[in-house]
Amino acid sequence: MAVLVALGAFLMTLAGGWTAQRVTDRRHLVLGLAGGLMLGVVGLDLLPEALEAADGELFGVPTALLLFVAGFLLAHLVERLLAARRAAHGADERARAPEVGLTAAAAMVGHSAMDGVAIGAAFQVGGGMGAAVAVAVVAHDFADGFNTFTLTTLYGNARRRAYAMLFADAVAPIAGAASTLLFAIPEQVLGAYLGFFGGALLYLAAAEILPEAHHEHPAGPTLLCTVAGAGFIWLVVGIAE
């Protein structure tokens, strides 16, 4: 049953990517929406789940929050190192590094695989729990597909690479759900991963995607798209609960 539900996530991911690549003439609106979706996924979905799963503390701070900060700082460090390398070779520091886009998309693929694992684990608990998790995952995988395609192309990668990462992101929930037939990931490990990934994703949204969305474009419509993206994730989380 979990694998069949994951097929729905597969289709929704492809639908999100298709939507992102069809509206290239309104790129600033696409980026504004992507930033809002990423903000909503991090603040309303990933971080609460991480805090619940990784409930330990280190020096009075929840482990999930420490890893969240670590993920944010690592994303910043990677981007700065790539910028320094481009500058050393005479490139414009403002130029986009394809490696950043591919790394971010690969992280989205890993997150989607964890979505599949979450579906499988929830169905092991019970049908009701599995259905609730499935609704949340299938709905927000539209945002995952949208963001995967947007992130890959934003950093200068060719469309064929973006399509390849989109397909990998679509297949990942099926692979994740199928893996639960063999083993289960410990809850603490899953929570740690979600916290770390959430920090990296927030950095990309706040430091890269949203500034690019507002660059040389009217702020009003773009801001509305950002708010709509975050609101959509809030709606999905609320329905799932």
Rank of each mutant, 00 (worst) to 15 (best):
V3P: 13
V3A: 08
A9Y: 13
T13L: 03
L14A: 04
L14E: 03
G16R: 07
G17A: 10
Q21E: 03
R22F: 04
R22M: 08
R22K: 10
R22T: 10
V23P: 14
V23M: 15
T24Y: 15
D25C: 07
G35Y: 02
G35F: 01
L37V: 01
M38G: 11
M38W: 11
L39W: 12
G40N: 11
L44A: 13
L44K: 14
D45V: 07
L46W: 06
E49G: 05
E49H: 09
E49D: 04
A50C: 08
E52A: 09
D55L: 00
G56H: 14
L58P: 15
V61F: 09
P62D: 08
A64R: 05
L66E: 08
V69T: 12
V69P: 13
H76K: 15
V78K: 07
L81H: 03
L81D: 04
L81F: 06
R86E: 08
R86L: 01
A87L: 04
G90H: 13
E93T: 05
R94N: 06
A97E: 12
P98T: 03
A105W: 00
A105Y: 07
A106Q: 13
M108W: 11
M108D: 09
G110D: 10
G110S: 14
H111K: 03
D115K: 02
A118C: 10
I119D: 04
G120C: 05
A122V: 03
G127M: 11
G127I: 08
M129N: 14
V133S: 00
A139G: 10
D141F: 08
F142N: 08
A143V: 07
A143C: 11
D144G: 02
D144H: 05
N147Q: 05
T148H: 04
F149N: 02
T150I: 01
L151N: 09
T152W: 11
T153R: 14
L154I: 03
Y155E: 10
N157D: 07
A158R: 15
R159V: 11
R160N: 12
A162R: 06
M165R: 09
D169Q: 14
D169H: 12
V171D: 15
V171A: 15
A172Y: 13
I174S: 10
G176S: 07
T180E: 04
T180C: 03
L182D: 06
L182Y: 14
F183D: 14
F183S: 15
A184I: 13
A184F: 14
I185D: 11
E187W: 07
Q188D: 02
Y193E: 07
L194E: 05
G195D: 10
F196T: 10
F197Q: 15
A200I: 00
A206F: 15
A207I: 02
E208C: 02
P211Y: 01
E212I: 06
A213S: 09
H214C: 03
H214L: 00
H215D: 12
H215C: 11
P218Y: 02
P218I: 00
P218F: 00
A219R: 02
T222Y: 05
L224P: 00
T226R: 03
V227A: 00
G229L: 00
A230C: 03
A230T: 10
G231Y: 04
F232S: 06
I233V: 02
W234P: 14
L235N: 06
V237C: 04
I239D: 05
A240G: 07
A240M: 12
E241Q: 05
